[in-house]
Amino acid sequence: MTDFQGKPVLVTGGLGLLGSAIARHLVHAGARVTIVDSLEPLFGGNRNNIASIENQVEVHIGDIGDTDLMARLVRGKTHIFELAAQISHMDSMHNPQRDLAINCAGTLGLLELCRRLAPEIRVVFASTRQIYGTPQYLPVDEQHRLRPPDINGIHKVAAEDYHRLYNEVYGLRSTTLRLTNIYGPGMRVRDARQTFVGLWFKLLIEGRPISIFGDGQQRRDFTYVDDCAEAFLAAAGDAHVGATYNLGGDGPVSLTELARRMMAANGGGEVAHIPFPADRKAIDIGDYWADDSAFRGASDWLPRTSLDKGLQSTLAFYRQHLPAYL
């Protein structure tokens, strides 16, 4: 594991679900953490996510496209965890230019600043399993073809290639993790803009039925947020420079089985099966779960939180804190 003691580290998107978890783990590892987040209302940032470490981190509210701000924040840093992104697949289809500005231009601008101002910096970049599209085989490994079903996935492929190019041509030391369904305390729950799982937690707590599109037999894997944060810190090791890895978790389970487990953790609930909306069906990838054996073998990382334990922890969190996330 990388020694972060006393290291100045930047987390972009650091008020979101995963960014804030990474920030907490870095603080506990002794790092000097700076967070930047736009707090864009349609994204996942929430200041409540850093309540336990607020006095131990430096927070800047701003966009990664702000070159002057990002130049000041990049200088002197040893590591960047690059989480700032537009991650809604549907929003990317409705507003592709905005997705392009954030997920491509934002990434490219950050890499340029690193090249010019901090060429020795270590970068870990968050990508997505959506870049694979509908799987040709399961589980999906890193050699699977890339055929994104939506604008967001296309832009994430481009962002990955920016990282690859800057690593190969300029020697900028980066690693990419392709993520699946991340869940846990601090996730967006007010709607299904980023993930349906967050909305399901809200509906359960409010005593309303969970809505499942179609028959609910699609199988997915799920990664608890703290397990994912530990993977990012592990990926910052020098042995992973230039590598791209899948990251999975506990699963696979069908969405119907996930709903059953959530209701069991909640002590009750209902499911309503509804027709698949045409716009969502067009970009749905069906079954997906990751083969992340390459990363597990290279890093000794293993997810430590079972799905049932993670669901219980998340429900307990929102029973106490739901109003702050509505």
Rank of each mutant, 00 (worst) to 15 (best):
L203F: 05
V9R: 04
R190H: 08
T305D: 06
T195M: 09
G268Q: 04
D66G: 12
Q320G: 00
D66E: 14
I283K: 01
Y245R: 02
A84P: 09
R47G: 06
M263V: 04
I151S: 12
E120M: 05
F196D: 07
N167E: 07
M262K: 01
R24D: 14
G268K: 02
L177E: 13
A159L: 00
A239D: 12
I53F: 15
S293K: 12
R208F: 09
G133Q: 01
T314V: 00
A159F: 04
R178D: 02
Y137T: 11
Q143I: 01
V123C: 10
D291G: 13
D292Y: 03
Q130H: 15
A192Q: 08
I64T: 07
F43G: 00
G269A: 09
R319I: 00
R173L: 08
Y162E: 03
K7T: 06
R32E: 15
N246S: 05
R129I: 08
E82I: 03
G198N: 05
D3S: 09
A234N: 07
G297A: 07
A84G: 08
T2V: 09
E230D: 15
G198C: 03
R24F: 10
E160D: 15
L311V: 14
T223D: 06
K156I: 00
S20G: 05
A71I: 00
S127P: 11
L204Q: 00
A192F: 04
